[in-house]
Design a protein around this nucleic acid. Structure first.
Length: 572
RNA sequence: CGGGGCGUGGCUCAGUUUGGUUUAGAGCACUGGCUUUGGGAGCCAGGGGUCGUCGGUUCGAAUCCGACCGCCCCGACCA
């Protein structure tokens, strides 16, 4: 490809809207442009990278017998009503009507469509296992699009779905895909790790996320040397014994006592006043869960992990209640809630950390008063004691007890073991060996293809630009004639270009009538792994320079040796 | 949706506080010409703007007021 004819609008300056390196560089290097918030155009250079990633995924999926399909992006409401997700998916689902006012949505994911297809076309256990996948543009009306293509409203994804006859077989399929995913990310040249994750809106039994390690990542990973790793949402709380012991055999219980705490609402202030440490406090939070109030209690020095509460209650929406609701439930303004003497009956959930508190402090459900010496099972009862807290720095690993480490990552892949969640609601069955009708056992698997491109840049760049891993680089070689008007330089450059092209390499030649400085800057910016510089000075010694984008070293070789050197450099 | 910020040629921004010397500017980019040619060149000549939109205040609005739209950042959603 000749650069003079290539649509590669590079930018010298950092676009105002871009915050993180990958976003800035994707725009500056002419990979993409923004059309609207969270909606991007892929330019020729970017599309090449996207296709590279896509092809690696395709090869690996095909290698485990997965079959590629292509499903509609536009999907009828009825199917989503059937699965119950027309409502459940909420505002993120982009809805539209056709000319007959029939409702449709733009697919944010394809469980419904694929399950529908399989229930219509697959009848027998003999056709199982079945693993189908596709590449598709997904639509999710994200609450807040962010970081360029990392959190976009329209994005490119590979999704796969497995159908098995038994749970055991489904697990085999799951593990198969899991391992394939590891190979894919490895081949893309990414530093990544897999972690246990929440199942979220997709639902199902359990799931793993694949995280690309990056400081700018949105996800926080809690990991341990023993191999345990989970995202923060999922990271298990420390077992009860480690956060203050179980309820039960406890001694030294003191009389319940009411104390005036005028204008003191925070754990910090009251703690100072009563000379009690935060770990004596039973923080009592009123939540609204799908419209219903619910109370969550946690020790004063911990934070509630709302997604755990959400997944335990099986609700769609959860947020801290407004002051009005708090007054209705507790009979007191914000800041004085406690489990003793609530006005309205609602679900009372306690984190493990609450169970061990002896003679604790809570709000009195009365303006300007708190209670001292509050004790579980004596002064109040809870519906459930479970793990509801957010893991934090200093926590120990739930598997081995060593201290957890925290790092950041970008989620590029997610695998779910769905079980029969969708096959049941959509009544997708097959006839088993024994002649009985059974539900398919499903799994679903996603890779954010466009997100991988951003993640790779997040991991591979310096102050001058992108440093692509070779397997997903848009071109392998960039030829940089220092002055293309110079006859000898042009002749040699053209020759190398033709040699490499005919040897099957993807070569970009900067044949523009630009000054050398401009060409070098652009070369660094777009980050092609191998740069061949052809200049007058070195040519006088019958030499051209070969340099890797990620290294300092410059190799000097005779022009005709380039075609021998490139295969060596691209080998690994 | 709540909180904060921004919107002026293709890009990055000045000008807005305190309305009138601004006939709306700068640098980069773009077009033509000359010179230059190993890390974002120089000179000359050009093209390109409803100052986000609509309405209001005023003799006069990029500048003041109101509404709306768009974009970004912080939080609740997720590949």
């Amino acid at each position: 490809m000749l650069l003079s004819k290539y649509l590669l609008p590079t930018l010298k300056e950092i676009p105002r809207e871009a915050e993180i390196p990958s976003h800035q560089l994707m725009i500056r290097s002419g990979i993409m442009r923004q059309l609207a918030s969270g909606i991007y155009e892929w330019l020729p250079l970017g599309l090449r990278v996207l296709h590279k990633v896509e092809n690696i995924i395709r090869e690996e999926m095909d290698s485990i017998g997965a079959q590629e399909v292509s499903l509609p992006a536009i999907q009828p409401r009825e199917l989503w009503e059937e699965s119950g997700r027309w409502d459940f998916y909420g505002k993120e689902l982009i809805r539209l009507k056709d000319r007959n006012r029939r409702d449709f949505c733009l697919g944010p994911t394809h469980e419904e469509v694929i399950t529908d297809l399989v229930r219509r076309e697959v009848r027998s256990y003999k056709e199982l296992p079945l693993l189908l996948y596709q590449f598709q543009t997904k639509f999710r009306d994200e609450i807040r699009p962010r970081f360029g293509v990392i959190r976009a409203r329209e994005f490119y994804m590979k999704d796969a779905y497995s159908f098995d006859a038994t749970d055991k077989n489904a697990e085999t399929s799951y593990n198969n895909v899991f391992e394939t995913y590891s190979r894919i990310f490895q081949r893309c040249g990414l530093k990544f790790r897999s972690v246990e994750a929440q199942t979220g809106a997709i639902g199902g039994a359990f799931s793993h996320e694949f995280m690309v390690i990056a400081d700018t990542g949105e996800e926080i990973i809690a990991s341990c040397k023993c191999g345990y790793a989970a995202n923060l949402e999922k990271a298990e709380g420390v077992p009860p014994a480690k956060v203050g012991g179980k309820a039960g055999k406890r001694s030294g219980l003191k009389e319940l006592e009411e104390v005036e705490t005028k204008n003191m609402k925070t754990v910090e202030k009251i703690g100072k006043f009563l000379k009690e440490k935060p770990d004596k406090f039973i923080k009592t939070l009123v939540y609204k869960t799908d419209g219903e109030p619910a109370i969550v209690m946690i020790r004063g020095d911990h934070e509630v992990n709302e997604s755990k509460v959400k997944s335990y209650l099986g609700v769609n929406e959860i947020f801290l209640a407004d002051e009005k609701t708090i007054e209705e439930v507790t009979g007191a303004p914000l800041g004085f809630a406690g489990p003793v003497g609530l006005k309205v009956k609602c679900k009372l959930l306690a984190d493990y950390s609450v169970e061990g508190i002896v003679n604790g402090v809570t709000g009195a459900n009365k303006k300007d008063y708190h209670l001292k010496n509050v004790n579980i099972n004596r002064d109040y009862k809870v519906d459930e004691v479970l793990d509801l807290r957010r893991a934090k720095e200093g926590d120990v690993c739930p598997k081995c007890g060593k201290t957890l480490e925290f790092s950041r990552g970008i989620e590029v892949g997610h695998t779910f073991k769905l079980g029969t969640k969708y096959s049941k609601t959509l009544r997708a069955t097959f006839l088993d060996k024994d002649g009985k009708e059974k539900y398919f056992v499903m799994g679903c698997y996603g890779i954010g293809v466009s997100r991988i491109v951003a993640a790779a840049i997040e991991q591979g760049h310096d102050q001058n630009g992108i440093i692509w891993p070779l397997p997903i680089a848009p071109f392998q070689v960039l030829i940089l004639p220092v002055n293309y008007e110079h006859e000898k330089i042009r002749t040699i450059s053209n020759r190398i270009y033709e040699q490499l092209e005919s040897a099957g390499y993807e070569v970009l030649m900067d044949d523009r009538d630009e000054r050398a400085g401009v060409k070098f800057k652009d070369a660094d910016l777009i980050g092609i792994p191998i740069r061949v510089t052809v200049g007058e000075k070195t040519l006088a010694k019958n030499i051209v320079e070969v340099k890797l984008r990620g290294e300092k070293e410059v190799r000097e070789v005779e022009p005709d040796q380039v075609q021998k050197l490139i295969p060596e450099l691209t080998k690994k």
